[in-house]
Simulated scan of single mutants.
Amino acid sequence: MYLQSQLDVIEWLPPAAAERLRLLRQRAADAHRLIPEFETVREASMTKIEAANELKRLTDHPQDFGFNLKPDDPRVKTAIKYLEKMTADLKRLTELREVRTAAWQTASQAKAAVESWLRDGKPHGTTLEEVETEPPKLNKGEDVLSGIESLRRRVRELRADLHRIASAPYPSAFCKQRMREQIEALAQRGTPSVSRLVELDGPVNFQTQSLTSEVHAERRSLAFTETADALALVAWLHRDALIAALDREISTEADDKAALSHEARQKAEAEARGDLLAIERAETALVWRAMDERLPVEHRPDCNPLAILGCQLVTVPRTNGSPRSSPMHAWDVRR
């Protein structure tokens, strides 16, 4: 029996965070209620069509079942004005529906992102605790909306830094060491055995490798074969030349000025992510303030849910060694 879908993710939150999620839900629901109903738009469309048909009946020739009235006839003028009014009403309703649907979708995106993260993104073995942060201060001459935009520019800068860190090459010395380890392993794997030749006057045994391939025929099947390990044999035979050639390739390809080691990469990423979360906490605090002041702003759907909810993750120690419940099958009481 699948119980997890019956539970509301808001039950996992501390009180203040739960209230923030309720506010997000209420904001989305309020925005949805402002959308003109489809039936209202349909009725306006039908009224316009009826007005157009009435005008056509007044001006059509009698052979087309019309009254053949002239354009200056008062009844035609009245029908034209009524059609123009119905056309304008339909246009207004259609545009209003589009604008308010877009506003509802914008208001719903952050809520959906937070709920999705709570259901599927929150790390197992963690719980959420409220975190207190200093209220952000606006710069001189800066209002709430411009303060939010300033923080969002900083968010974009930090995300660009994270992309730069992730895209940074590795140092040439590290790459050369890894290459040597790979070639040494290949050479060792490809070393021929002459034991049978020396002891039994048998053949030299060259190392082999097993290959598997898929056969595409009327019925798909697998084919297996064993063949000489040519790459490993070349590495054994020309190890020094191969290492020297790859050394030159690495020196040509490397960019040590922009390179980051694993340790430097982890440190830089941790610092950037910490700064990003701090900026997003300040941003969301201003967004909540702007919402209280009824200003036109919404939380970004890609904002960290921890910042929107005002929480932090805390690891919960396991109380016993029993296995966790299988995902999608039962509710894990230790979540």
Results as ranks from 00 to 15, higher is better:
L186T: 04
A112K: 11
L186M: 14
C175L: 14
G125T: 00
A112W: 09
G141S: 05
E130G: 06
A112I: 03
G125Y: 01
S172M: 13
T126H: 13
R100Q: 11
A107R: 00
T106Y: 02
E129H: 05
V144W: 00
H124M: 13
A160E: 10
P169F: 10
K137Q: 13
D161H: 08
D143F: 11
G190K: 06
S150T: 06
V144L: 03
G141R: 14
H163D: 15
L158K: 01
V114Y: 04
D143N: 15
S116H: 10
L93D: 09
E98H: 09
P192K: 01
G141W: 08
R152I: 12
Y170R: 14
W117H: 02
E149Q: 14
K111E: 14
A187T: 07
A102N: 08
G147Y: 08
R154T: 15
H163P: 02
T101V: 00
A166L: 08
I183C: 09
T94G: 05
A107S: 10
R178Q: 15
D161A: 03
P136W: 06
G141P: 06
M179Y: 03
P192Y: 00
R159Y: 07
D120I: 00
D89W: 00
P192V: 01
A166V: 02
I165G: 12
A168T: 10
E157Y: 01
P136K: 10
V131P: 00
A113W: 13
H124Y: 08
E132W: 04
A107T: 01
I183D: 12
K91H: 04
H163A: 15
R178K: 14
P171N: 12
R178C: 15
A103D: 10
A185E: 13
V114F: 10
H163E: 15
L90F: 04
R159V: 10
C175K: 14
L186R: 14
L162D: 10
E184K: 11
G147A: 05
E129S: 03
D120L: 08
E157V: 07
Q188A: 11
P123H: 11
V131I: 13
S116E: 11
R119C: 00
P123D: 12
Q188F: 04
A103V: 01
V114N: 03
W104Q: 12
P135G: 01
I148F: 05
T191W: 11
R189M: 15
Q105V: 05
R180E: 13
E98Y: 02
A166F: 03
K122C: 12
R153I: 06
T94P: 07
R156V: 02
D89M: 01
L186F: 13
R153D: 12
Q105T: 03
I148M: 07
L162G: 12
E142P: 07
E142N: 09
F174K: 13
D120T: 00
R154V: 15
G141M: 05
K91Y: 04
D161V: 10
L158H: 04
A185F: 06
Q105N: 08
D143C: 12
